[in-house]
Amino acid sequence: MTASDFLSRLLAALLTLFGVGVVIFCLLRVVPGDPIAMMISPSATPADITALRAHYGLDRSIFEQFVIWIGDVAQGDFGRSISLKRPVVELVGERLPASLELVFAALIFGVVSGGLIAVAGTLSRKTPVEPLLDLINGLFLAVPDFIWALALVLLFGVLWPVFPLSGRMDPSVSTDFATPFYLIESMIRLNLAVMLDILGHMAMPVLALGLPLASIIARTLKEALNEAMVQDYVLLGRLKGMSEMRLVLGEALRNAVGPTLSLTGVQFTFMIGGTVIVERIFSFPGIGSMAIDAVINRDLPLIQGIILAFGTLFIAINIIVDALSNRLNPRQTHG
């Protein structure tokens, strides 16, 4: 990517975020629901309510409110949460890392297991194993993340309780972390007990988020691999004495991986959306479960902050996916 490419992508990203900001800001003020109504006591007088409205600036026009908000955002001030009475930046900064660890773990799980199933399916084509894999994968493909979450709770939380049901880690585990990335930090510090405890807590939400991704990757990649495996260059590779494994991994994979990569980018953004429900089910203290509370409390600044964080994440993912697929295609890198 050249410098001018980078600049134009950055500009496009900022414009997109601005658009997201406009939409979410207006939408939140048009839909029914009043943050003031959620915070007042039953004994409040109309005068109290008017005063509170003026305090939060909700008595001004939407346009005026927007200009004030976007001006603050441009200076890095995302406002204070109405319900939690703390700066939005602080809250998102606390919760986002937990969710990031969760979704990246689920991404790694989905890509690795989906990739392995695709390769296994390609290696076993024209044997009875292939339709069996397809059938199982088809079933997995039909189950959404929240159903997985509930099924996993029943399975590994109740029937065979191997994983903890909720939270990010055991309350007894020490919490003196230097960063909010607890899993990564415990890995770097080689603190095995803490790492295993966190991984144990993450196991079920990661499975719930990662299994749908794994099955869709398995299907897409296997189809592309099977298509590549009948190309002449694979036939010639076989004549040149390559093993089936090498034909799949060395010859077919790089040509087949393109569609799967784009799809993974899209699915990954869906998965981040999925954290909202899955984190709720496992009481995982991430940004997704905070989003639900913010919506319930009509906590306008917090919702806006969370949505902008999600938006930034989505844009970043798209840029990374584009860069990766350019890298993989020699037509792009060696014109």
Binding site: Q231, D232, Y233, L235, L236, G237, L239, E251, R254, N255, L328, N329, P330, R331
Partner: peptide, 14 residues
Amino acid sequence: LIPQDPQTALNPAR
């Protein structure tokens, strides 16, 4: 073997 189509007989990624 010398294949028919030189477009598809060489791996585009290598």
